[in-house]
Design a protein around this nucleic acid. Structure first.
Lengths: 201, 201, 201, 201
DNA sequence: CATGAATGAGGGTTCATTCAT
DNA sequence: CATGAATGAACCCTCATTCAT
């Protein structure tokens, strides 16, 4: 399933082992020896390929940010219906949770807050993502779809926050994903974000 | 400003120093020596009062959870207008950010994801909080204020997610809080959550 | 029962607590705080009276050596029957075990080997005791009671070794003492030491 | 001289250094840094091989108990003359003293009392040894060589006590061993144990 | 490529001791 | 006499990283 480096060799074994161990124990409690053992290689080899624990973690984290940025870039084409864009974005996160739970768990538990706060690179990636969202919200306002009396910042808080909260609860509760759950999540987030939670008069 | 223990003695100095250092460096990179030095006390005194780094951190984290649980409990009284409850909740987070930025920063960067995922106690606290939110949303549905076609889980994702996203962005960007910003945040989150982001027909 | 210092006050409470804790945990694993807590006093007071952990331990150990030296001195009077001397000596150890098990346990487990080997004072006390035994054996040879073809060193090894082995087994096995057991022990040690273990022709 | 692990590598260097340092300073006052320095290896290598100070000590102590148990097992063959068994046992201790004084010194000063009293493993080893001695004494009684009116417990106290006292005095006095001294020790212990110290009528 | 022995700086923790009250 | 808050040197252990083979 996963083949981050393009070569199905020891490097991939190490990456996959690292994903599993980082998810289970968190960055601070992960030992390079754990990763090597899980990958079935000597731990000299981990250094041969990745140089340091930090670099290995970065490789994984970059995988995440790259895919997120790519997905958000893809939503910039003006031809797509706005509501469909929102659905695409939600679906991207849910699919990642379904297909690569280790990766998104690491993102949620190790990167989304701590690493973003404590490293310049993390902050830059976060801000880039946030900017993507704001741009999309700005487009929605320009096209007359979204209300203009709420700043794009706030629209992003609500929409991104909802997705993140959903994913986080799945991760924190280690809940499995299903097609039905995915359908309902997309619909609910979309419904409330666009139409509000209040009963209409 | 802060006086968690009710006595303005060495224990408080240590707690305040710990808040500052944990926020600056994160749990993993915090040295007990840093805390002692910042508090202006000897190395051993931190252990005299708190026993271990872990316990010291827990004391701080418990402060947060306790105040959050207390605030949410207070919203359970049926006499209060539902929309006012939402505003109270949003305001609690914003006020904490304004008055105790170290505490909420530690919560956002060290506790809200990582600790919740990796410790049973963290998970329990999170689930208790989530349950509080769901109960409130359930009350809103029963009273006819909120739509019933969206589950309380999803309503919570949207509302809690929005608040958390807002606070997180403030924390991550180290942005200052102001009365005007607070007013606008409350209004925006409330508006979109209740009425939706879509332009009305 | 025990009143080592002659005053039944805090000092005695501390000594008694120290006896109990040193026996339970051994010197290395005994905390001054444990002793203070067991005695029901603040641990500043332990220092007030005894100055240091080392001194406190020494006070206890000296109690032992003093009583042992005094008993052995008392056996020097020429008027006493030699076999009775041996019995007196054996009985002294057994009675101490019965009346002050903490003290003799500390002697066996903490002093008799380790402290004797590692401290000059311990060695001096041991050598003084050994000399006492040798003198007694020498007297036994001079009076024509003991064989002269075995050096007093070796006679001491056998006799002292037997007593020590008996006491140690009691201590190590935490076995209770009884009058019957005491009678048999005295008789057996005496019998074998004087007449040998071999079946007579 | 000593090669406990069968490979003359770093592990052996560490074991040999540990023997020397544990003997000189005792367990409590031994620093892992001392052992590493004495062995001429880095600090971490001691942990690489032995995991902890405790384990390192245990490895050494197990060496002792194993050899003692093996020797005692070897005396169970019925074909050997009983008096020769006693001599073999005495000689084993004296030879160990001559060939591996560090090991037996550690046993006498750190293990024989304190560790036996304070650790279950130590107690079990001691009891196994004591049982060996009792069995041998029981065989001596059955074969008609030893008197039956003295329990095997007491015969063991006398015989084992004598050996231990002899070795302990050598250790505590740091006395050198010689062939002549060994011959005399064996003869004296054997003589008194079998025939008694009393002048025959 | 691959191994794992070897390194050593770093950090949490302990606990005997001091001293102001 | 009595207390216990305060001190800080000492030490065990961890683990990322290096490097000879």
């Amino acid at each position: 399933m996963l083949n981050l480096m393009g070569k199905n060799d020891k490097q991939d074994l190490i990456i996959e082992a690292a994903l599993a161990v980082f998810r289970e124990k968190g960055y601070a409690n992960t030992r390079m020896a754990d990763i090597a053992k899980r990958a079935g290689v000597s731990y000299g080899l981990v250094y041969h390929y990745f140089g340091s624990k930090d670099v290995l973690f970065d490789v994984i984290v970059d995988t995440w940010w790259s895919s997120a940025h790519a997905m958000l870039d893809a939503q910039k084409s003006p031809g797509v219906d706005f509501e469909q864009k929102l659905i695409n974005i939600i679906r991207f996160f849910l699919d990642t949770y379904a297909n690569n739970p280790d990766l998104i768990t690491i993102f949620v538990t190790e990167v989304s807050r701590s690493s973003v706060y404590h490293t310049p690179k993390g902050l830059a990636n976060f801000q880039k993502t946030f900017k993507h969202f704001e741009d999309i919200m700005g487009d929605g306002q320009k096209s007359g779809f979204l209300r203009k009396d709420i700043g794009t910042h706030y629209l992003t808080y609500i929409f991104l926050g909802a997705i993140e909260a959903f994913i986080s609860v799945m991760v924190l509760g280690k809940e499995p994903m299903s097609a039905e759950r995915e359908r309902r999540a997309i619909n609910s987030i979309n419904q409330v974000f666009l139409n509000g939670a209040r009963v209409k008069a």
